Amino acid sequence: MEILRTENLTKTYGIGETKVTALDNLNLRISKGQFVAIIGSSGSGKSTLLHMLGGVDNPTKGKIYIDDIDISSMNETELAIFRRRKVGIIYQFYNLIPTLNVEKNILLPMLLDGKKPKKEEFDKIIKMLGLNERLSHLPNQLSGGQQQRVAIARALIYRPSIILADEPTGNLDRANTEAILEMLRVSNKEYNQTMILITHDEKIALSADRVITIEDGRIVSDEVIKK
């Protein structure tokens, strides 16, 4: 079952001689429950693609469908609500709110909607991520690995259909990198969530089921990983 597709997705910046094409008529289809890694060198367009899929930025041309809904035609308010409920985003630099404790940072997407998670769901996520003893801590009282776990918990709390992870282990050592990747794999299997992982590290990409390589805003290879 297809959960995401793009049609001739194009993103350009600047005009005239300064015009840069970050995405060039890119067509992509991803099935529900797939764990996909998107790799490419700096400037290849992979992060731009993730921002488009997450509704953080708008395409210059083309369409993006998530669950057969055209998010590229939504206004900013509609996008914000859709993103909060349907798409979880994990950034390299965590993007936690420094004045909120761990518990409130995790619950932020639901608090913005005036909702409360089921206690058993919340407890399950924080137990899986090893955050039980850190709920009252502020972000600056945590290690980098712990902050990334909080960011993952925040992305999971709404049980979104898709998790977009932008270099989520870029600032972590090897041990924390392995732990974070394992948590993403567990969430992928347990909740049947579609994972789209942006990385420049081919070793990390091989933890996915499918590896897509982007160069100059175009897909140059698309491989299923046999395990």
Rank of each mutant, 00 (worst) to 15 (best):
I3Y: 05
L4T: 06
L4Y: 11
R5V: 08
T6E: 00
L9H: 00
Y13N: 10
G14D: 12
E17Y: 09
T18C: 14
L28V: 05
K32W: 08
F35Y: 01
F35E: 08
I39G: 05
I39L: 00
S42N: 00
S44H: 01
G45E: 06
S47Q: 02
L53H: 00
D57M: 02
N58R: 12
T60L: 04
I64R: 05
D70M: 07
M74Y: 14
N75H: 01
L79M: 13
L79N: 08
K86Q: 08
I90H: 02
P98A: 02
V102W: 01
V102M: 00
K104G: 07
L107M: 13
L108Y: 11
L108Q: 12
L111G: 07
D113V: 13
P117D: 07
K119F: 06
F122A: 02
D123C: 10
K124G: 06
K124D: 11
I125Q: 11
L131S: 01
N132Y: 10
N132P: 03
E133D: 15
L135I: 14
S136T: 14
L142F: 02
Q148Y: 09
A151F: 06
A151I: 06
A153M: 06
L156K: 10
L156Q: 11
L156R: 11
Y158V: 08
R159Q: 13
L164Y: 01
A165Q: 00
D166N: 04
P168Q: 06
P168N: 07
N171I: 04
L172W: 05
L172S: 08
A175V: 14
N176A: 14
T177M: 01
A179W: 13
A179N: 06
I180Y: 04
E182I: 13
E182F: 13
M183T: 03
M183W: 03
K189W: 09
Q193S: 14
T194I: 09
M195N: 09
T199K: 00
E202W: 05
E202L: 12
I204P: 01
A205K: 10
L206Y: 14
L206I: 03
L206F: 11
D209W: 10
R210W: 06
V211K: 04
V211P: 12
I212E: 00
D216E: 02
R218V: 02
I219S: 09
V220G: 02
E223K: 12
I225Y: 14
I225M: 08
K226D: 11
K227Q: 15
